[in-house]
């Protein structure tokens, strides 16, 4: 049995997910909560955001994010990859900073423009 606090809405239902029993969810106040609980128990994922070095006079760092959620267990590994990145202006929102994280579909992309 795994326990979670539902984040779908501010109510914060305490969910219990039974892995032994086909990830059945109890404690949920609505169907969306059940789906959230199941997802969290089976393969939790997160969007990761950070900022990376950029050779700019004005902006020492450029914010980035993963364009898709990645496995929760990969977050710290993904962060370490950013240590080696240094962008050069111009940077455009959406520019891929690191492609295909861990061979998957998610990329780190820039989230702002940096012109100079």
């Amino acid at each position: 049995m795994k326990e979670y606090v539902c984040i779908i809405c501010p109510r914060g239902c305490h969910l219990a997910v039974d892995e032994e029993n086909d990830y059945a969810v109890t404690g949920n106040g609505c169907l969306r909560g059940a789906a959230y609980g199941r997802e969290e128990a089976m393969h939790p994922t997160r969007i990761v955001t950070s900022s990376v070095r950029v050779r700019s006079r004005i902006h020492p760092r450029c914010p980035v994010k993963t364009d898709k959620a990645i496995a929760k267990s990969d977050i710290m590994k993904a962060m370490l990859l950013l240590d080696d990145v240094e962008l050069s202006p111009p940077v455009r929102r959406g520019d891929v900073v690191i492609a295909s994280l861990f061979g998957g579909e998610a990329n780190f992309i820039a989230t702002r423009d940096i012109d100079e």
């Binding site: 955001t49 900022s51 914010p63 929102r93 989230t111 702002r112």
Partner: peptide, 25 residues
């Protein structure tokens, strides 16, 4: 918003999840 580089903005207004700088942009 420029320093709020995390995601979670815009779900209500833009109907999609954005970071602070993206929302501002």
């Amino acid at each position: 918003l420029n320093q709020c580089i995390h995601n979670g903005f815009g779900l209500h207004y833009f109907g999609e999840e954005l970071t602070g700088p993206e929302y501002a942009a």
